[in-house]
């Protein structure tokens, strides 16, 4: 049985670990923020791993570049627009680990969504490179295994067939999505065999799933102030599917 002293030492280590990771994430977020604002080029040369500045961007070459990771001045790599501040304030990382899981999940969601938004600015195909280059998600992964969610969010759009096929292969960072929303369709008496049919199921990034579900669940001027989910009430399967397909396209999950 662990002694009281041992338990206290373990708790102190976990506390220090959180603090170190929090600093790490703040640094990386700041770097990513600067990099995206400066039209970051992930292919820009970087200092080789192993040296003191390993992984940081060098000043030479490349059209973009962010402030050096690690807090040095980095003025040689700061190019591009300084005036573009589209992401607003970065989230403060609490210096103490939030005591309950709800707060921890909220924090991770905020970070993951902000990072994905920033990364999205330079193109879905390059977002994964940026995330990997910044080594941002290690802390998130350690704490919440959310790394998969972030990288999946950077997936380029796929064909409908690819999204259908992927349903048979569950993976971290992805969820099964019903093109015609499952809950309302069930309530309105559509048969389960139709709701859960292969052509109504797709595997999509979890955060995109949440974005799309959120869109259905919030009031919308373009649907007469109704939630799209309510707008579709009483409508036939084809209308529901048309909107479901369009949402997948507009949220860049499905190729147009």
């Amino acid at each position: 049985m662990q002694s009281q002293a041992g338990w206290q030492a373990g708790a102190q280590l976990r506390r220090m670990g959180w603090l170190l990771h929090a600093h790490h994430v703040e640094t990386k977020l700041l770097a990513l923020d600067h990099a995206v604002k400066a039209n970051f080029n992930p292919n820009q040369p970087r200092v080789p791993a192993g040296s003191a500045d390993g992984g940081q961007w060098t000043g030479g070459g490349g059209g973009g570049g962010g402030r050096n990771v690690g807090g040095s001045d980095g003025s040689d790599t700061l190019v591009g627009s300084d005036g573009d501040d589209r992401f607003g304030d970065l989230p403060d990382i609490p210096k103490e680990r939030p005591p309950n899981i709800r707060d921890r999940n909220r924090l991770v969601r905020r970070i993951a969504t902000l990072v994905a938004r920033m990364a999205g600015r330079v193109g879905a195909g390059r977002a994964g490179l940026i995330i990997a280059g910044l080594d941002l998600a290690q802390w998130v992964y350690d704490e919440y295994q959310a790394y998969a969610r972030i990288t999946a969010y950077a997936d380029p759009p796929k064909t409908l067939e690819e999204l259908h096929d992927a349903v048979s292969f569950p993976a971290a960072g992805y969820e099964i999505h019903h093109i015609v929303e499952q809950g309302p369709a069930t309530v309105e008496g559509f048969p389960k065999s139709q709701i859960d049919a292969r052509d109504n199921l797709v595997r999509i990034p979890k955060l995109k799933h949440q974005d799309i579900t959120g869109w259905y669940a919030t009031p919308n001027e373009r649907f007469g102030g109704l939630r799209p989910r309510d707008y579709l009430r009483g409508r036939n399967w084809e209308e529901r599917r048309a909107i479901g397909i369009e949402a997948l396209i507009k949220f860049e999950v499905l190729k147009p």
Partner: peptide, 21 residues
């Protein structure tokens, strides 16, 4: 590519095109 706003904007344009409102 700034989600969810990019998706919402795309759906708004689609709804306008379709005459939904």
């Amino acid at each position: 590519h700034e989600f969810p706003q990019a998706g919402d904007a795309g759906m708004a344009l689609w709804a306008l095109e379709k005459g939904i409102s």
